[in-house]
Amino acid sequence: MADMILEIRHLSKSFGSHQVLKDIDFTVSQGDVTAIIGASGSGKSTLLRCINLLETPTSGEILFHGKDMTGPGVNAPEYRSHVGMVFQSFNLFANMSVLKNCMVGQMKVLKRNKDDARQTALRYLQQVGMAPYINAKPRQLSGGQKQRVAIARALAMGPEVLLFDEPTSALDPEMVGEVLSVMQDLAAQGMTMLVVTHEMAFARDVSTQVVYMNEGVICEQGPPAQVLGDPQRQETKNFLSRFRSS
């Protein structure tokens, strides 16, 4: 069995009296591409943000290589540097050029020297096809370009697992393809990824496991052919039928 990277155990999260996540359980192994699907408000993004500790889980455990990351005394920044995240709204640093965006984390967090950081940044920018734009500021780029830079920024940190929070939801339809193809390449290279997405085709073709969430619980999970092709639960069928008809 492949090396287990992340284990989510009995994870719950409440905002006040509103329980957003209820007793979530699943595991991510080396090389897995997990697609998390579900309607808006079902807790997909919150789950991802909890995994990255951007939200503090109310209860439950997040085991990273077997070590619990939710307890007191955990070095959250150190953990986050191993778990990359790509946001729906890109969140590129507005005060830096594209190249600097991909270098600053390596230099400040990983303490790499400038030349190494530059080389690594250029390599990943090349991979996502953004190398010619190293001098541009984020505000000068299109949405798809920004998202590709954001992916390069996350990759430059050498993460063990990459979290994508609806990476294509804020993009125009013609830009969705360029971002998805970058993600597809990553999957082919064996990157471990967790992708919250509404792109069913991506979930079907690229992912190795699909998690369907409904109202804060995992309703159904398994290989894409099973969850998407032959769903067992009525909720899953209803959700998927909306995508089929469109």
């Binding site: 951007l54 920044p77 986050r80 540097s81 990359g84 946001f87 507005a94 967090v109 920024r153």
Partner: peptide
């Protein structure tokens, strides 16, 4: 924008 803080935290900055 709060997203800037999240972006920085997500790459491991304190």
């Amino acid at each position: 924008d709060p997203g800037q803080t999240e972006g920085a935290m997500a790459i491991g900055m304190n």
